[in-house]
């Protein structure tokens, strides 16, 4: 956990970008994955789909009633359940917060 905290602080200081969970971001945001903390097999599946720290993703859609969200990773649309969304920490650059 120390490492994420350091990373997030670094991000905040250097790039003026924010670290938050994927669920909090707006639709259309271009994000960078910082940390995937979804537990063994789900992390493995996410990793095999290319959702690993450092990769750029776009949050493209969100289902109604607080349902799953859709992200674009490496040109593919992937739907993630809401429970996973809170376990993916992303960094959001300035543009998406305005």
């Amino acid at each position: 956990m120390d490492i994420i905290d350091k990373k997030s602080i670094m991000n905040n200081n250097n790039n003026n970008s924010l670290t938050k969970c994927l669920g909090e971001c707006e639709i259309g945001d271009e994000l960078e994955v910082i940390k995937v903390d979804a537990g063994g097999s789900a992390t493995q599946r996410l990793a095999s789909l290319g959702i690993v720290p450092g990769v750029k993703i776009i949050k493209s859609r969100s289902a109604p009633f607080n349902g799953p969200i859709e992200i674009i990773v490496k040109g593919t649309k992937i739907v993630l359940g809401r429970g996973l969304v809170s376990k993916i920490i992303v960094s959001c650059n300035n543009s998406c917060n305005l």
């Binding site: 789900a42 599946r45 992937i78 739907v79 996973l84």
Partner: peptide
């Protein structure tokens, strides 16, 4: 219950 991870094909 596991979470949904699904590719949305075009």
């Amino acid at each position: 219950c596991t979470e949904l991870i699904m590719e949305m094909h075009e």
